[in-house]
Design a protein around this nucleic acid. Structure first.
Lengths: 261, 261
DNA sequence: GCTTGCACCTCACGTCACGTGAGGAGCCAC
DNA sequence: GTGGCTCCTCACGTGACGTGAGGTGCAAGC
């Protein structure tokens, strides 16, 4: 019968801090507040973390990353009615929820860029939609009440943002040039799924890649939908030529399809 | 010539706090430290936030969400060499990076669950891989140096975690039952892409859904790859019957394909 | 005309999760 | 035996606000 000596492994603060990506001070702190007390101390009073302690630390770090205050983390982990699997389950749910929130924030950044490009000024509610934990029902009503006559108010928000820079002009010129060529394309009766229209859609995508963020075909399609769904974006494109927004949406869809196929 | 009266809209602290999802105190604080000084004050000394102020606030909140300290946020936003588009661009990059990190954390949670199910104890480095900002090169070397003889050490870590609960037993029984039936299936010479094997793969997925987290077909495939790539997971399945891990992986792939098609 | 209520104001201290030394102990290597 | 490393325990500092305390401006109701 061999003794399982390796089973009694334990780690010093420095070691734990090392691979857990936290400072020694943090571990001291967790010890102080009773959140993570090492299950043993060495002869010299040094903290020794067991494998189970590491397990708990991992749970702590997950909850911390998810924004829980430490006392709540302690309450959660010390709840005898909750087994470890339940924690992992909950953490998984919270993580996916948080990912979803960040994806929405990324979308908000994309929208903000598009708005800037087209000189559209978003309303405050739109700007911060992704932040505050507003319930959307009292939303419109509140806006009406607070500033009475949302129409006039909203209209005033539509004015161009005035970020006049050097290359900003160049970009605007590019957009205008592209718009003229798209206008001509439609005048020539080119269909959205045709070669010429798809090339213009691709150029549109490249324009975003170059000036803004990395724009995948998938993301590009999302934007295309917004161009027809949101009145203001639609108005921007239709001002180049009536019906351009819808035509462009279809061209973008076709262009995406040809590149994914 | 109409006067654009609507253009001079401005908002009180309460309004701004309302749709930005922050407290009034936070806005006071940002004013105190000079991060966001409202561009105007009312006759009574009340803060009045202009549209441009809201713009800046949005930037602040994005950077804050991304973990920047406020003084750095101020430095970034007050840098005259950086135009607004550059900020949005950077924010978009940081957001996608952060999403990626959270996706990895979710994967770590999944791995932790699988490990628990199979009685595998992960090594500390694996546990915290997703946290610390370790560079992976000095990784193995360091582990060797620190505990000398990683083999014996790692072996000691392989023992079963002892979370013996009530329904834990039931779950283990389910796994064992499933294992026996899969063994029989292979003994009967069923191919991975066959109906029977795919049904077992689907049952495997349902098992995860039931006991753990919502497991999509896509996610299930990711797990399947891990089962053959990681020696310990592979060993777990192959202990039911040699070659089972690979067979299962193929069955899971086939099952995913039939549901996505 | 007066008070009540609401949203705003300015101090100013409290809190949470650590950061950052200060001063000292154990231990291995040269 | 003397650096040098990691560990220890106070204990005060800090960043990003929270939380009253006490006072002002103003529209509505009595």
């Amino acid at each position: 019968m061999r003794t399982e000596k390796g089973a009694e492994v334990s780690y010093s603060v420095g070691q734990v801090a090392g691979f857990a990506g936290v400072t020694v001070r943090t571990l001291h702190h967790y010890d102080d507040i009773g959140l993570l007390a090492p299950s043993e101390r060495s002869h010299a009073g040094h903290r020794r973390y067991s494998d189970a302690d590491l397990d708990r630390l991992q749970q702590i770090l997950f909850y911390r990353e998810l924004g829980f205050p430490l006392d709540e983390v302690a309450a959660l982990l010390d709840d005898p009615d909750t087994d470890p699997r339940a924690h992992l389950r909950r953490q998984h749910e919270l993580l996916t929820a948080r990912i979803e929130k960040l994806r929405k924030m990324a979308a908000a950044v994309e929208q903000a860029m598009e708005a800037r490009t087209m000189g559209i000024n978003l309303t405050p509610e739109e700007r911060f939609e992704v932040f505050g934990d507003k319930d959307p029902e009292q939303y419109a009503e509140e806006a009406e009440q607070r500033w009475g006559g949302t129409d006039a108010y909203a209209e005033s928000q539509r004015r161009a943002a005035s970020y006049t820079k050097d290359d900003w002009k160049r970009m605007q010129a590019e957009v205008a040039d592209w718009g003229e060529r798209y206008d001509a394309l439609m005048a020539a009766g080119e269909p959205p799924a045709g070669q010429a229209a798809m090339d213009m859609a691709e150029e549109h995508r490249q324009h975003i890649c170059g000036w803004f963020y990395e724009c995948s075909y998938e993301l590009h399609q999302g934007l295309a939908e917004m161009y027809v769904a949101d009145e203001r974006f639609k108005a921007f494109y239709d001002s180049m030529r009536p019906g351009l927004a819808v035509h462009l949406r279809d061209a973008i869809t076709a262009n995406a399809a040809r590149h994914s196929g």
